[in-house]
Amino acid sequence: MRLFFRLCAFALGAAAMTAPVLAQDAIRNAITARQSLMHLYAFNLGQLGAMAKGEMAYDAETASVAAGNLARLTSIKAGPMFPPGSDNATIDKTRALPALWQNLPDVGVKQAAVAKAAAAMEAAAGDGLPALQAAIGPLGQACGACHKAYRAPED
C-alpha cells in the first residue's frame, strides 16, 4: 500500500513536471502552424505578384488558381493557432506582439478584411492583368494592417 502511494506520488510528480513541457510544445506547434499558413499565403501571393510586376506572363488560369487558394486560406479560422502565451514577450521565434491578445476583436476585424480583399482578388484575377494589378494593392494593405499593429520589427 505504501508502495502504491509512492508510485502515485511519483506519477503525479512526473505529470506535474511534464505538463508545462507539453504546453510549451503545443505553443510551439501553434506558432509553426500559423507561420506555415503565412507561407501558404505567400506562395500564392507570389504567383499573383510576379504577374503584377511583369516578371511572369499573365495567365488567367494560373492567376485564378492562386487567387482561389488564397481565398480559401484566408477564410480559415486561425484563432487556435494563436493560443495565449504565444507572444514574443513570452516565447522566442515569434514576432507576434502581446497587443494582439489584448485586441482580439480588432484582430478579427482585420482578418475579415484580409478575407474580403482575397475574395475580391479571386473575382478579379481571371479578368485580365489590369484587374489583377488593381486588386493586389488592397490585399497588401489588408495584410499590412495586422503586421503594422501586431508584429514586432525584425531583429
Binding site: 503565412m38 499565403y41 505567400a42 506562395f43 501571393l45 507570389g46 505578384g49 503584377a52 514576432r95 493586389i136 494593392g137 490585399l139 497588401g140 494593405q141 495584410c143 499590412g144 503586421h147 503594422k148 508584429r151 514586432a152 520589427p153
Partner: peptide, 12 residues
C-alpha cells in the same frame, strides 16, 4: 502594395 519580394508585408 507593401508586399516584399517573398510576399511578406511591411510591418510597424
Amino acid at each position: 502594395s507593401g508586399f516584399t519580394p517573398d510576399f511578406d508585408t511591411a510591418g510597424a
